[in-house]
Amino acid sequence: MTLDQLKENERAIIKHINDESLALQLLTMGFILGEEVKVERIAPLKDPILITSGSNHISIRKADAKSIEVQKTQD
């Protein structure tokens, strides 16, 4: 599944990012392949979304979240 399908407060492991420049950008902002990501908040108009990984909090558009493949973690 992809990151845009996650609901608020759901967690997942980042598997692969299909867009190379986005992958590099997210990596440098602390969103590392194989680490956990959480959808912290979805904007009132359903887009963009606020995601967190460790101490890193960023907002990204759904269109970009679509190219991030994740595996949902069970809790």
Partner: peptide, 8 residues
């Protein structure tokens, strides 16, 4: 893209 850090 709109990848923007949300500082505390």
């Amino acid at each position: 893209t709109f990848t923007l850090e949300m500082p505390i």
